[in-house]
Structure formats: structure tokens, C-alpha cells
């Protein structure tokens, strides 16, 4: 998702229903009305067509495997066995790792920019961070492959194994050999990629907290820090959760960079973040050129359908939260 469109939706939502202007008697008005109407309609039709076509192509696989398509981990084109639980698992795990790494950084940055930074510093820093969002994902992929993965293999993962890896239960997360191209590395790359999204929205959410809330807390004898934790963060909470979820949704569908650093192997679901794996998106990218049989192709498309549906659901929830967070401002100011 990109920020411009999310901003546009928000503005549109604030303005409420569009006034009816189609009733004009002027011919030019009518033509223009029809033109913009058909533009809007064709977008919806395209979207619907996309879902319908995915569904038609996926039907064979879904019909044959049913629920086991989502619950088993056998992906064996030779024997025509297709289970995708490990793809879903890889997607969830890498996105969660990204979220855990990116959310504190992004929210911390947003708070610094909105509450502490001098005015001259705000825009330049925000601009640089938002610039991260326009870097094509193949560049993150190349950097991840050639720079990050060797560092992870040589330094970070051995360090984690030697420290956290020794702790009883948590250690399971870092068991097995340090490979460098695994779920953890994919999560780190994703964290960097979703950072600007989460930061930019979190900054808007924090900025939309009315000053009267801050003053109320300061007036009771709160320090700056207490004002932020006692008044700003609670007020911004639902919006911040939404910001993080939008980042999560972006991490969910990210393909190119992940495919290059996740290892693309293993049919097992293991607790260790150091296992190479797949995400749904990377699996599709890896498999679709080899899908020679009809059932194989249908299975790949079914993965795409699952990915699309889950992304839509997460995005919808996130937007609802951000929108509700922004709505607070109007009703409670």
C-alpha cells in the first residue's frame, strides 16, 4: 500500500458522502459525470474480475484438497500433494518478526518527531525515513542477499545463539545452524521495509492528539514523559495499533526481497527462526514458472487467493483502527 492513497481515503472519509451533482441539465456536466462514474466502476470491476479469475483457477486445487490445503505441510508437485501450512506459517513468522523489530523503532521515531524534535529537524528526518518507502524492493533484496545475509550468518546469528539461544524456552527460537538465509533475515529486511509506513502513519496519529489532552496532563503536574505515556499514547492507542497493522499487512504481501533472503526450502514447521523457509508470496514467485500440470498451477493460484484474502482482511481491520483513531479527534477535541 502507499501513503498517498491511504491519505486520500482518509480525506474522502472525512468529507462524507459525495454530493449528488449528476442531476445537472448541462450536457458537459452529464458527460463528465458519466466519465468519472465509469472510471470508478471499472476499478471495481477490475478488482472483482481479479478475485473471480483467481477463484476459478484455484477451484480445482481447493476442491481436491479442501481444508487440508491450509493445514498440511506437504508441497510435492511430483506426487501432486499440495499443503500450504508452512507457507502461511513462514508468512506469519516473518511478518511478526518485522513487526516486533519495526514497531518500537517507528513509534519511537514518530514520538520524537512529533513531541521532541525542534521544528527545523522534523520535516528533513521524516522525509528521509519516508524515502525508504520508495526504494524498489529488489534493491532491498540485493542488499539483503549480499550484505545482510552474510552479516547475519557471520555475526548476528552466532551471537544470538550464544546468548538468547542458551535460555531454556526462548532458546528454541535460535536453534540449528546459522545459515543467514532464513526466516529471521527475511524478518529483518521486512522490518526495514515497513518502517517508513508505520512511522509516517504513527506520526500523523500522534500529531492528531489534541493539545488540550497534553495540557490537561501537564496541568496536573506531569512531566513531559508522563504527559506522553499518560495522555498522548492512550489517546493515540487505536491509531497506533492500526499503523502497526498496516505495516504488518505490507510485510505480509512483500515478495521480491523476501524471496531473495528466506532460503526457499524446507517443508517443516520449526520453532527456530534460523530455518530457511517460504512465505506465501515467495512460494508463488518460486513456483509459478514450474507449474506445468494443471493441478500444480491451480494450487499456486490458490495460494495467491489465500494471500489476497488474508491481506484484505488485515488491511481492512487496520484502516478501521486508524480511521477510528482519527475520528476521535473530531468528536473528542
Amino acid at each position: 500500500m502507499d501513503l498517498a492513497s491511504s491519505e486520500a481515503t482518509r480525506v474522502a472519509q472525512r468529507q462524507g458522502p459525495t454530493p449528488v451533482i449528476g442531476g445537472g441539465t448541462n450536457v458537459g456536466d452529464r458527460i463528465f459525470h458519466l466519465a468519472v462514474l465509469s472510471a470508478a466502476q471499472s476499478v471495481l470491476v477490475l478488482l472483482a474480475a481479479l478475485v473471480v479469475l483467481l477463484f476459478i483457477d484455484a477451484k480445482e486445487a481447493l476442491g481436491r484438497f479442501g481444508l487440508s490445503f491450509l493445514t498440511t505441510t506437504d508441497w510435492d508437485p511430483v506426487f501432486e500433494k499440495f499443503g500450504t501450512a508452512h507457507f502461511v506459517f513462514g508468512t506469519l513468522v516473518t511478518s511478526l518478526v518485522a513487526l516486533v523489530l519495526a514497531a518500537p523503532l517507528a513509534i519511537g521515531t514518530a514520538l520524537f518527531l512529533a513531541e521532541y524534535a525542534p521544528r527545523w529537524l522534523r520535516e528533513p528526518v521524516a522525509f528521509v525515513i519516508e524515502l525508504l518507502a520508495v526504494i524498489p524492493s529488489i534493491i532491498f533484496g540485493l542488499w539483503g542477499f549480499f550484505v545482510l545475509a552474510p552479516i547475519m550468518r557471520g555475526y548476528v546469528e552466532p551471537f544470538l545463539k550464544a546468548t538468547v539461544g542458551q535460555v531454556p524456552v526462548l532458546g528454541e527460537l535460535f536453534s540449528g545452524p546459522a545459515i543467514g538465509k532464513d526466516l529471521l533475515t527475511a524478518g529483518v529486511v521486512l522490518a526495514i521495509m515497513i518502517l517508513p509506513t508505520v512511522m509516517a502513519i504513527a506520526r500523523e496519529v500522534v500529531r492528531s492528539v489534541p493539545d488540550t489532552q497534553r495540557e490537561g496532563m501537564i496541568g496536573l503536574g506531569a512531566t513531559k514523559w508522563e504527559t506522553i505515556t499518560g495522555a498522548v499514547l492512550p489517546y493515540a492507542r487505536s491509531g497506533l495499533v492500526g499503523a502497526v497493522m498496516l505495516g504488518f499487512a505490507r510485510a505480509f504481501g512483500e515478495t521480491m526481497a523476501v524471496t531473495m533472503v528466506i532460503g526457499n526450502s524446507s517443508n517443516v514447521i520449526s520453532a527456530s527462526l534460523l530455518t530457511p523457509g517460504y512465505t506465501m508470496a515467495s512460494a508463488i514467485a518460486n513456483q509459478f514458472t514450474e507449474a506445468d500440470k494443471e493441478i500444480y498451477f491451480s494450487a499456486v493460484v490458490a495460494v495467491a487467493l489465500v494471500l489476497l484474502l488474508v491481506s484484505v482482511i488485515i488491511n481492512g481491520l487496520a484502516r478501521l483502527l486508524v480511521w477510528r483513531g482519527a475520528g476521535n479527534v473530531a468528536t473528542r477535541r
Partner: peptide
């Protein structure tokens, strides 16, 4: 500010706090 209380133009209770928690926030 703990000794000199202030009430503002627009009511600004903390919306995420209960009535009780608003009163004892200070």
C-alpha cells in the same frame, strides 16, 4: 502546577480513562 490547578476552555477529560481514574490521575 500541582499547587495551582487549572481548568481549560474545552472540557478535556482523558477519554481512555474511567471517571474515577480521571479524578485521581494527578
Amino acid at each position: 502546577r500541582r499547587h495551582i490547578g487549572m481548568v481549560f476552555q474545552k472540557p478535556n477529560p482523558f477519554p481512555m480513562m474511567s471517571v474515577y481514574d480521571n479524578v485521581v490521575a494527578g
